[in-house]
């Protein structure tokens, strides 16, 4: 494997609503910051890859319009995934393995404020059997949470504690809306929305953008492993209490001797599943940024975990794990392992 480093990182602050900047303006701003962080000029970039979703942005070909922000004329080598930017990062990492180019710029952007994200995510469900039922992503996550309770792998207090940890850590994160202070007992006193889940068990959705510059060799945290795995589309054939795809991705990415993990949990109940699948324990720092429960920008949250893992390494960690998920009930999972150089 060719050794690839994270040369630069950037994010725009995650906001509850970003009304001022359109997609091109978001992309121009965040990619300029990442390139400056890497000390690389745009014209030196060999490959550009982005992750976003027109269903989220509410505009056809929003990713094409956004390309103005990276300077796509004269033509550049460019690709896009209708997925979280973490998968764009994976494509760029694979592209750099070809060996003919040495640098890549990866970015993603998303706005949860322009539409109903739950309705948009419903579009990815089975069109014959599930989508017509109008089941919300929260209800599907609740089904998974109930399976966890029934198997005695977790209780509702565990969910509330995950929210508490996220809010305490998130209070120190200058790039997200300030989380509301609370107590576990106060959280448990809140009503169910889709039992056993309460409103606060779902991630706080935000608008934002993130970018990463990859470089073959050179300084910066090194990617030592990168893998993603997916589970069957039909929820009924999966064991919802576990995540074999996250476990396989972590194994393939060589996720051992981890100091810090940044994991993508759309729902508080999913932290238990991911801690088990990814082999995380109490000796590791998990989600020092607060994680996605306090700020989840659709299509950005996963790429931002890699940004945060890079920050952790810059702050002194030796090995960091970044995780991204996609699809209902943690269907698709990606793991990227970084190491200090």
């Amino acid at each position: 494997m060719r050794s690839i480093s994270i040369a630069g990182i950037a994010q725009l602050p995650s906001k509850l609503a970003e009304h001022h900047m359109d997609a091109a303006e978001l992309v121009q701003a965040v990619t300029a910051l990442a390139l400056a962080d890497a000390g690389i000029e745009r014209k030196q970039i060999g490959f550009v890859c982005s992750g976003s979703s027109d269903y989220i942005m509410g505009q056809p070909f929003s990713f094409v319009m956004a390309l103005d922000g990276v300077g796509a004329w004269p033509p550049i080598r460019e690709s896009h995934v209708e997925m979280d930017g973490a998968w764009a990062l994976y494509e760029a990492w694979v592209r750099l393995q070809h060996g003919d180019i040495d640098t890549a710029l990866v970015y993603s952007f998303g706005k949860s404020s322009v539409g109903n994200v739950d309705d948009a995510l419903g579009m990815q469900l089975d069109p014959y059997y599930v989508a017509p039922l109008g089941v919300s992503p929260m209800a599907l996550a609740a089904l998974q949470a109930r399976a966890l309770l029934d198997a005695r792998f977790a209780n509702e207090r565990d969910f509330a504690q995950a929210v508490m940890r996220a809010r305490l850590a998130g209070a120190r994160n200058p790039n997200i809306p300030t989380p509301t202070a609370t107590t576990v007992d106060a959280l448990l006193a809140a009503p169910w929305v889709a039992s056993p889940l309460r409103a606060h068990d779902a991630a706080v959705r935000t608008d934002g953008a993130a970018a990463i510059v990859l470089r073959a060799g050179g300084p910066g945290p090194k990617i030592t492993g990168f893998a993603h795995r997916i589970e069957p589309h039909a929820l009924g054939v999966r064991d919802l209490t576990t995540s074999p795809s996250a476990r396989r991705a972590a194994d393939d990415a060589g996720a051992s001797r981890i100091d810090v993990a940044e994991i993508h949990t759309p729902y508080a109940s999913q932290e238990t599943i991911l801690r088990n699948a990814l082999g995380l324990n109490d000796r590791m720092l998990v989600n020092p940024s607060g994680g996605t429960l306090v700020a989840e920008t659709p299509m950005v949250a996963g790429l931002l975990r890699v940004v945060e893992a890079t920050r952790a390494i810059r702050d002194g960690a030796h090995r960091a794990l970044a995780h991204a998920t996609s699809g209902p009930c943690l269907q698709h999972n990606l793991v990227c392992v970084l190491e200090s150089t």
Binding site: H20, A23, E25, G58, V114, G115, N116, M123
Partner: peptide, 9 residues
């Protein structure tokens, strides 16, 4: 699907 899209600056 309904959206309230902001034009941008």
């Amino acid at each position: 699907l309904e959206y309230l899209v902001h034009a941008g600056a």
